[in-house]
Design a protein around this nucleic acid. Structure first.
Lengths: 115, 115
DNA sequence: TGTTAATACATAGAAGAACGAGGTATACGC
DNA sequence: GCGTATACCTCGTTCTTCTATGTATTAACA
């Protein structure tokens, strides 16, 4: 009974990825799992969105990656934030907050009075 | 001194438009103004985004329009919600809330200890 | 041993949204 | 008469997202 798949608004994925990586080095596959778990299934990131996003962020110099072994003995690409990525996260998180506050104002408009 | 232009995440514009129209019939130009005013300048909708969005919503049967005169005696296209549009607004607003709650959980993750 | 599922990466192609730039036309103030 | 604000519109580019597809390894299980 899928609790309604909620497509992530464009641009938001980058922010969420940066946030998860900020908590400590993780590999891509784990990022998607983390996002789904923490959001209780609301945020679901298809691999076709995830990996391009990671490459994008790496190309922009916000992420750096190293191949390492996971606990289960498999090779995986572990990402970490660059200094630039750290700043970007800060900026984007603030932008996001300002934006949802603004949208809350709009969605909170009561439809009564003189139209 | 532009208070940092916040590009609206894709998909969000439709929701905001539906909300403004739900408050009473308005024409396109006024919708953009209303959004900017209520959001205190955070949400800015360029006409190149606004009108295509309105046409999109109309084509999907969520909006209906009539040409009328404004208070200032000019012809303008006044939009109103169809029944379907009203339902869509309800759904999308709920989806939006669920989503930002989920994202808040993610952004609120503290980077200490065992996750 | 075979086969299925989960892990872990990747890309190509299509679809869709957003935006800048351009265009039309009317009303109002000066 | 001219500039500005109002009010509409669309074309083309750019970017993100997603579906589908592919590779390879490990673990479980019959």
């Amino acid at each position: 009974m899928s609790p309604s798949k909620s497509d992530l608004p464009q641009g938001t994925l980058d922010l969420l990825i940066l946030k998860v990586i900020a908590l400590g080095p993780v590999h891509g596959y784990a990022i998607a799992q983390r996002l789904e778990q923490v959001s209780r299934g609301v945020v679901q990131v298809p691999e076709g969105s995830l990996y391009p996003a990671l490459h994008r962020l790496e190309n922009r110099g916000l992420l750096a990656a190293d191949w390492k072994e996971t606990e289960t003995g498999r090779e995986a690409k572990f990402y970490r934030l660059t200094r630039k990525g750290s700043q970007q996260l800060k900026t984007e998180a603030a932008d996001w907050q300002r934006l949802i506050d603004a949208i809350s104002l709009i969605l909170g408009m009561a439809d009564r009075g003189a139209q």
